[in-house]
Amino acid sequence: MTYPIYLLKRQARRLSRAKNIPLHDALDQIARREGFQAWSHLSSAITRQADPEPNLVSAPGGLLLIGARPGQGKTVTGLIWAADAVRSGHRASIFSLEETEPAIQARLLRLDRRDVVTSDRLQIDLTDGLDADHIISRLGAAQPGDIAIVDYLQLLDQNRRSPPLRDQVTRLRALAQEKRMRIACLSQIDRRFELSGKSLPDYTDVRRADALGANLFDKAYFLHKGRTGLVALSTSG
């Protein structure tokens, strides 16, 4: 689907008010836009009736992995998480090697987050050669509850002068704990997942998981074809 299901419900409520139509009609219209026959069809295609709100998936001081194949909603999930932090009075930093600033702003506008786009609590950093050292340097003044989104994990060590990926993620986790902030790393999922028969990816499907180990992230949030799953991961403390 284009967006997580809780956001589709929000869009349906807005559509209902804008067109003065019953909510069930608006839900069906949203479902058809997403390629389903009706809302009931969409609902039956997912294992959960609602996604957790992004603010619930990681406590302050936590490091979260958001993993999905392309087009499944991981970037949208990260942006919603950041935008909701801004709306609640925290700062949000988006570090990306994938998106342009106009593209990120356009996504936020489509998500009905115009106020976030113009907020001085939102920082968008698209520095070439982005790595953990740079991220840490930009978050020196972070406060408890602030959020950082890293788009995406597997690009952090593309610069040969940057430390190995595991070392960088270890430093980001230490930063999250020290500042009592929340950091989410968007992650690629290996294409072999699509041949696995599983309805959702898991940590073994994370691209370059062997270079990371499983003890760095507090939680992982996976998305695929409207299904979502939040899992706790063992951590080293």
Score class of each variant (00 low, 15 high):
K219H: 14
D146E: 02
P163L: 12
P22L: 02
Q123D: 00
A59G: 00
D128T: 07
R208C: 09
L172Q: 05
R171E: 15
F222R: 07
A85H: 09
V231I: 10
N215I: 12
R10Y: 05
L153T: 03
F217P: 02
T235E: 01
R87Q: 15
F217K: 04
S88Q: 15
D190Y: 06
Q105S: 07
P164V: 14
A82N: 02
T204N: 15
D218S: 10
G129S: 04
R191P: 15
Q123P: 00
D190S: 15
G35Q: 13
N55Q: 15
I94E: 09
L108S: 02
Y221I: 09
S196E: 00
D133N: 12
D146I: 01
R208S: 14
T47H: 11
G129V: 04
G226P: 11
Q11K: 12
L186C: 10
H90N: 13
S43I: 02
L109R: 12
S93K: 08
L97E: 13
A31V: 04
R91T: 11
T75K: 08
I135Y: 03
G145A: 06
D167C: 08
R17D: 09
D128H: 06
S43N: 09
D218H: 14
G78A: 07
L109M: 10
L195V: 00
S40Y: 08
E53Y: 12
S137W: 01
G237L: 08
D51I: 04
G237Q: 09
S119F: 02
Y221G: 07
D115T: 03
Q188S: 11
D210A: 15
I80R: 11
Q154N: 01
A232T: 13
P144N: 09
P52S: 13
N159R: 14
Q154H: 03
F36N: 05
E194S: 09
H134A: 03
D133Q: 12
L175K: 06
G67L: 07
A176Y: 06
T118D: 11
L126V: 08
Q105D: 05
T228N: 13
I5L: 14
G129K: 04
S44G: 08
R191S: 15
W39K: 06
I183H: 04
T127H: 13
P54T: 05
G78I: 04
R107K: 11
L111F: 04
A220M: 13
G73K: 09
D151K: 04
G78R: 02
D190P: 03
P60G: 03
S187D: 06
L156E: 08
I104L: 15
L111A: 02
C185W: 03
G35L: 10
R69S: 11
Q188H: 11
A106K: 10
L23Q: 06
D125R: 02
P4W: 04
T2S: 11
L216M: 08
L172M: 14
G237H: 12
L200G: 06
A174C: 10
L175N: 02
D131F: 03
R48I: 12
L56S: 11
D151N: 07
Q154F: 01
N159E: 11
Q143H: 13
L122W: 01
A142N: 06
I136W: 03
D157A: 11
H24W: 11
P102N: 01
I80V: 12
E178M: 07
P70L: 10
V169Y: 06
G61C: 08
